[in-house]
Amino acid sequence: MTEELQKAGLYIDDIYRLRVQDPAIANETNELRDECLEYANKLQDFKKYAEDFHKLISDFAKDVEKEKLRAIGTQNLLKTIAKERQAEQQVYQSKIHEKNIELERLRNEYQYLQRVESEQQEIINNYLLNQ
């Protein structure tokens, strides 16, 4: 009878209910559906992860870019610092030069003041001798 029914496209399942589809296939279909659903979920997760990852990476790229620029800047600065130092040195050099001139002036003045002092001392001594 089962075969009869099968011919008519009807099946009887384990608990003797009448089915229009082979229960085995129905079961498999159900399983497949469940698996598909699971797969879809996993795919969803994966997509999220990928998106997160992408964001992370691009952020990182931005940082790298920034750092790179900074590095180039620093590099340039380093390059100019040598020049700057040179200019600074020149400034200091000329300041030293100025101070040296000033020193020379003062030394000269001192020398002449000493001379005046000794002359005056001489006159005082002379005067005391003649007293």
Binding site: I101, E102, E104, R105, L106, N108, E109, Y112, L113, R115, V116, E119, Q120, I123
Partner: peptide, 14 residues
């Protein structure tokens, strides 16, 4: 005054 320096010199004080 010479090149910025002030140079004092005595004249004959007598």
């Amino acid at each position: 005054r010479c090149a910025g320096a002030l140079l004092p010199v005595n004249v004959n004080i007598y």
